[in-house]
Simulated scan of single mutants.
Amino acid sequence: MRPFSSLKNTLLAGVLAVCATTGAASAATLHIGYSDWPGWVAWQVAIDKGWLKEAGIDADFQWFDYSASLDAFAAHKIDAVTATNGDALVTGANGHKGEMILTTDYSDGNDMIVAQPGITSVKELKGKSIAVEEGLVDHLLLLKALEKAGLDEKDVKLVNTKTNETPQVLASGEVAAIAAWQPNSGQALHMVPGSRTIFSSHEAPGLIYDTLLVDPQSLKDNREQWQKLVTLWDRVVAYIQDPKTQPDALKIMATRTGVTPEHYKRFLKGTHLLTLSDDKKVFEKGDGLTSLYGSTVVSDSFNVRYEVYKTKQNISSYIDPSFISASK
């Protein structure tokens, strides 16, 4: 899954290091960074099936580790990057502001709070220790879980832990629960017999949106190309969701990430892919999590509260609904 905000220092360093470069923004080819999250690996279907060329899109998709993709975008080395709506704010606050033109999905269960055997609800975590990487997306998920349970962060003890180390920490018995994303959450469930998921992003739909974040200059210079790419998204989603073609889609996505199709199917179940029709609603202004605007306000408040950056952002300036509106 995707780090939410730990990259503030590396992003800023990348921006400063390349402040004199012209970057790739005005290039005719669309240079797009993508990484290992089902809603983004989905683009591999369009790549492997030859749909980009068929649609008249000149795009170069470049595979990255997630943090490296954000660094590349911050350094103006690529025109666009697949990123959470929270990380869109982080890149902008640290120097390279992009615009979200498409939401590919929202997390629908892949982000979890996994508790020790015998703990069956979030309420039972009161007074107990929870391992979480502070300032990242599952810290935000944990706050939402506590809120729904009538608790506050002060009611528990946070143990700041690297996300990829949370399964081992849960197995050690040092904490009552962890907050982590797949595959770490799944690993914890496997390592600790009797452990269980007591809250997940399935219970907070729209808290974590995954988007296509694009350099504004590239949007201006290559609007027709970006429009074609957005329009193509529906074909990708349909191919993945159709029972007749899903096996082929899973094979393509699993091959890209180095796992079996059966294994990858479990990750896909925790990812709610969005069609362009869905996006028309998501891109409507609103205060709740059903709106990209409302969800991003929540992310912004979280980022400021935990000093990812200091000043609240102008949310509307990060969202361009015109491409979704123009899609048929």
Results as ranks from 00 to 15, higher is better:
137 V>G: 14
165 E>H: 00
7 L>F: 07
65 D>A: 14
155 D>V: 04
116 Q>P: 07
120 T>A: 13
90 V>T: 04
158 L>Q: 04
215 D>T: 06
52 L>F: 15
303 N>F: 01
320 D>L: 05
115 A>H: 06
176 A>K: 07
304 V>K: 03
91 T>I: 03
150 G>M: 03
187 Q>L: 12
151 L>N: 12
292 L>E: 12
224 E>P: 07
110 N>D: 14
316 S>A: 15
208 I>H: 01
319 I>D: 00
291 S>D: 09
148 K>V: 01
249 A>I: 02
269 K>S: 10
194 G>D: 09
36 D>V: 08
241 Q>R: 15
49 K>A: 09
154 K>W: 06
58 D>Q: 10
196 R>G: 15
165 E>W: 01
46 A>M: 10
313 Q>K: 11
254 A>Y: 04
241 Q>G: 11
150 G>T: 12
183 P>S: 14
234 D>T: 08
159 V>M: 02
200 S>Y: 06
48 D>S: 13
225 Q>L: 04
144 K>T: 05
109 G>Y: 05
251 K>G: 09
153 E>C: 11
299 S>P: 07
278 D>M: 01
324 I>A: 07
162 K>S: 08
326 A>E: 11
159 V>H: 02
59 A>W: 01
178 I>H: 01
257 T>A: 12
219 L>M: 06
170 L>V: 03
62 Q>K: 09
319 I>G: 11
237 V>H: 06
158 L>N: 01
89 L>Q: 02
16 L>C: 08
23 G>P: 12
197 T>C: 11
160 N>D: 14
5 S>R: 03
39 G>N: 07
307 E>I: 03
316 S>V: 09
237 V>R: 08
70 L>P: 00
16 L>I: 11
284 E>C: 06
328 K>S: 15
113 I>R: 06
124 E>A: 14
